[in-house]
Amino acid sequence: MEPSPRGLFIPLITPFTEDGDLASGALEKLAHAVIDAGAAGLVALGTTGEPATLTAAEQHTVLDIAARVCRERGATLIAGAGSNDTAGSARALRDLAAWPEVSAALTVVPYYTRPSEEGVVAHFTRLALHSPVPLIVYNIPYRTGRVLSVQTLLRLASVPGIAGVKHAPGAVDQDTVLLMSRLATTPPTMAEPPGGFAVLAGDDVFASPLLALGAAGGILASAHLRTGEFAELIAAWHAGDAGRAGALGQRLAPLSAALFAEPNPAVIKGVLHAQGLIPSPAVRLPLLAAGHDSVRAALALC
């Protein structure tokens, strides 16, 4: 298994032209820019990239571009793959073998059908057994409808082939604190996966508190902007520089809140377009482009 992911990962937006087509050149330039600014790697086809609205050909183009950039730059590539269907998720994961640069798959907890926690463990155990790459469980209960207890998260941490979790519970709650405490003091009771188990911050506003508790890094959409400071935030917490890290976290949290004032990635795209970094602020339905007030408020914090 690859070493567990660590550092800042940018879940890339998918830029579109004014006509609504995939803007491949802008995507490649943006991928290079965030790595230049300090990102350890990229996430292709994460939720921020609007993969549900992309054709299969467009998804392949996004992966081709991200793979090429990461190969050229020696950066880590994580790919979003999977849904609430175990068999379909297994097929999507197998398809990632076509891109050898992919080092892990970000795979969401099954949504809408709301399986039991036992069902969630069975789902990921089946996927990890046959996946060509390690899995990063995407735990985001306010989207999936399924809350995972600390006991279930620790069980997932012990499954061979699961490298970590993108943890986005919407708060630094009791289970989060207990999870970080357990991982810091003792490994899971069953066999620990090679390379360890990484908790990656997935709620941008709460990234700094989770890093303070010991998170290995973050998959942070907000870090499309002020990328270097988000990378420095992670590095400062890892170095034990609580004063520097705390000050950075306080500065960056308002930006994250502003960028999520409307459904992601609308505001991020509006800001990137206003800065001349992508050709249009367009998102695809059912999302709508961000309002001018939201974009202006976020720009003022960039």
Rank of each mutant, 00 (worst) to 15 (best):
E2L: 06
P3C: 05
S4C: 08
D19W: 00
S24Y: 00
A33Q: 13
V34S: 10
I35D: 04
A37T: 03
G38I: 12
A39E: 05
A40S: 14
G41F: 09
L45Y: 04
G49R: 05
G49K: 11
T53N: 08
E58Y: 00
I65A: 04
I65F: 05
A66Q: 03
R68H: 09
S83R: 02
T86N: 05
A87R: 08
D95F: 07
A98H: 15
A98W: 06
W99N: 03
S103A: 15
A104S: 15
S116A: 07
S116M: 01
E117K: 11
V121F: 07
H123C: 09
A128E: 12
L129F: 14
P132E: 01
Y138V: 07
N139V: 08
T144S: 14
S149A: 04
L154I: 15
A163E: 08
G164L: 06
K166F: 07
A168P: 02
D173G: 13
T176Y: 02
T186W: 13
P187I: 13
P188M: 14
G202Q: 04
F206A: 12
A207I: 11
A207K: 06
G214P: 15
I219V: 15
A223R: 05
T227F: 13
E232P: 01
L233F: 06
A235Q: 14
A235T: 12
D241A: 13
R244W: 13
G249W: 11
G249F: 13
P254D: 02
A257F: 12
A261D: 10
V267N: 04
G276L: 10
R284S: 00
R284D: 05
P286T: 13
G291V: 11
V295G: 00
L299G: 14
C302A: 15
